[in-house]
């Protein structure tokens, strides 16, 4: 219990003093996770919308595959990205290994299937509801996709949140491709792993508390928005 009380006070102290190392770690964590979430949302929503609104041979197989990829083990993604970006790999010439960009790539690969699978379900349900109306208005496919994405915007926020949650809490892939380099690729999760291995449990717990608080605040904001949109009939 002492560890917990110490951790809370340490976390509080680190936050109130704007500890430069902590600010740097939080900033990098947010930059990597938000960028990866944004990229995943672009790719994932496009894949989800395409699967939701078109019928083609093999579609069911692709849906099963995308759903299965939701459970992709982060260390496997980390390993694949490592092999791709290592000097001997096909993209080694880019020199991205052990950089924040490599961490963004790994996280994007990890989150895109989550966004694609969840948005596909959401968009398909709405498309089923709207289909006759869209057909009646003789809308083009791109008009239909744009309208669906806009009308599902609040539902998609939850999908984004799921992606962000996975991203900010991810450690396996980013530690492989980022290398946990101080002041360069060290993020909250890798810092927690490092402090734990050093036996500095108070610091590790303090970082954990901050990480959870961050996730809680984002969740609360999105939930509030979603509740409000449901009340207004927009969700």
């Amino acid at each position: 219990m002492q560890d917990f009380s110490e951790s809370f006070s340490l976390a509080f102290q680190l936050l109130t003093t704007f500890d430069p190392d902590l600010v740097e770690i939080i900033g990098l964590s947010l930059r990597i996770s938000l960028t990866a979430t944004l990229l995943s949302c672009i790719f994932g929503c496009l894949i989800g919308a395409a699967l939701a609104t078109t019928r083609f041979p093999g579609r069911t197989v692709i849906i099963i595959l995308v759903n299965a990829l939701m459970g992709l083990p982060p260390v496997v993604v980390g390993l694949i990205v490592y092999l791709m970006l290592s000097r001997a790999g096909p993209f080694g010439w880019l020199g991205l290994l052990y950089t924040p960009s490599a961490m963004i790539i790994a996280q994007t690969l990890l989150i895109t299937p989550i966004v694609a699978a969840l948005s596909r379900q959401l968009l398909e349900d709405t498309h089923t509801e709207y289909r006759e109306q869209f057909e009646s208005l003789v809308m083009s496919h791109s008009q239909q996709v744009r309208a669906l994405l806009w009308d599902c915007r609040y539902g998609l926020l939850t999908v984004v949140l799921a992606g962000f949650g996975r991203s900010i809490a991810e450690v396996g892939a980013v530690i492989i491709v980022g290398g946990n380099i101080e002041h360069y690729t060290r993020v909250m999760t890798t810092a927690i792993a490092l402090e734990t291995s050093k036996g500095n449990l108070s610091m590790a717990l303090a970082l954990g508390i901050i990480l959870m608080t961050l996730a809680l605040v984002v969740n609360a904001l999105v939930s509030g928005l979603r509740i409000n949109s449901t009340r207004l009939g927009y969700a």
Binding site: E129, Y130, E132, Q133, S136, D151, Y234
Partner: peptide
């Protein structure tokens, strides 16, 4: 020719938007 037709369904399918935005949506199409 279908673009010159319109249909109202038994259960109206309204978009998750304001009243006027539903009408403007049809115009924008």
């Amino acid at each position: 020719y279908r673009k010159k037709q319109a249909m109202v369904f038994q259960k109206p399918v309204l978009l998750r938007r304001s009243v006027i935005e539903n009408v403007r949506f049809a115009l924008r199409v």
